[in-house]
Amino acid sequence: MTIPAQRELGGTGYAVSEIGLGCWQLGGDWGALPDGQAEAVLEAASQAGVNFWDTADVYGGGESERIIGAFNQAHPDPQRIIVTKAGRNADLYPDGYRRDTLRASIEASRERLQVETLDLVQLHCIPFAEIQRGAVFEWLDECRQDGLIRYYGASVETVEEATYCLEHTQVASLQLIVNLLRQDMTETVLPLAKEQDVGVIVRLGLASGLLSGKMQKDKVFAAEDHRNFNRDGDAFFVGETFAGLPYETGVDLAEQLKAYCPQGVSLPQLALRWLLDQPAVSSVITGASRPEQIRDNAAVSAMALLPAELHQQLGEFYRQQVRHQIRGAI
């Protein structure tokens, strides 16, 4: 089994696997998993050398954190970095941001994850106005000084939000939406993050599964799956689902991207390798509901870099064929 290479997460000193594990699905929000399957995914991640796990307090109402906490207690690994997020639970979002409510959220995550100090807490796509107000970062600093967290960052949705965080805050990391169907972050945000030694965590690297290359236009998603209820941005930011593209359009574009795959390289491998070729990227978190998925994703770390000419072609494809079809802010 190929163990993924590791990169530094900005200035934190953490060595994280290039391919990480996103744990939203473990809480059952995408549809209930069979008994024991969440633990099997975590075990597969451990065996594959995927030491960077991303969760949030709202995934499954805390269930994702509880599963991870129990697994981590039963199978400890000093190299494992568990990242959680705060800011979207009902006590905080959209207008309940106070020192005590944020601290209580962090305390609850500590209990579910069964740790004294959280490795990294990221603000979870909170309103841009709260980021600009700045008090949340003061409160996170207090939590860090009190030993509740080691580092803090922000998961954001747009280029504007990411740029603001880099220019006006002391975040250790940014979690960004970047993929072949949403490339704008590569132009200015990634270079600036690299310059400032801010770790970049990529989410939605496969565009909610579009870049698996297996989606069909008639596919039916579970009622509780965001790919069903947020397809048009009805529940939260439209860019979080299918990169902001209409589903059928995304399926067509993914099919067109297959023509750019080198011989022997699948579309998901192309998509993940393209992300890893970005020097500012620390880790790409990939969701997996089956053990074999995380093993397949981790193997991309061993692939050779894509040719520079192919990178140029993929950028041109995005600018000409994709960008104008994305809905919502970019």
Rank of each mutant, 00 (worst) to 15 (best):
A44W: 09
V220S: 08
I3W: 02
I330T: 10
G60F: 11
A223C: 00
R231L: 11
S17C: 05
G134Q: 09
F317Y: 14
L245V: 05
A48E: 10
V265I: 15
E63T: 15
E240K: 10
V284C: 14
F237H: 14
C261H: 08
G209Q: 05
Q132F: 00
V251T: 07
I326T: 01
K214E: 15
H324T: 08
A329V: 00
G27D: 05
A135D: 15
N230C: 07
D184I: 00
T249I: 15
L211S: 06
L120P: 01
S155T: 13
T2C: 01
N297L: 02
V83N: 12
L276K: 03
V178L: 15
E316C: 07
A298N: 05
E63C: 02
P262H: 11
G264W: 13
T241D: 08
A308H: 10
A280R: 02
D225N: 08
L306S: 06
A288R: 05
Q263F: 02
F221E: 09
L257Y: 09
I19Q: 04
A44Y: 11
A40G: 01
K85R: 15
E130H: 11
D100L: 04
A302K: 09
V202G: 02
D119H: 15
S283L: 05
I149K: 02
A162W: 09
G28K: 07
G134F: 07
I68L: 13
A243N: 03
L210H: 07
Y260C: 02
E167K: 14
L102K: 02
L275I: 13
I82G: 08
V121Y: 03
L166C: 08
G239A: 15
D119C: 04
I106C: 11
L180D: 08
V251F: 11
A280Y: 01
K217W: 03
L253Q: 12
T186W: 10
L211H: 10
G134Y: 07
L118Y: 01
N228H: 15
L180I: 12
Y97S: 04
L257G: 06
L206K: 05
Q196A: 12
I126F: 06
A271S: 15
E316F: 00
Y151S: 03
G11T: 11
I285V: 15
V322W: 06
R227G: 12
K214P: 01
V322D: 04
G13E: 11
H75E: 11
I68P: 07
L181M: 12
I326C: 05
Y14L: 13
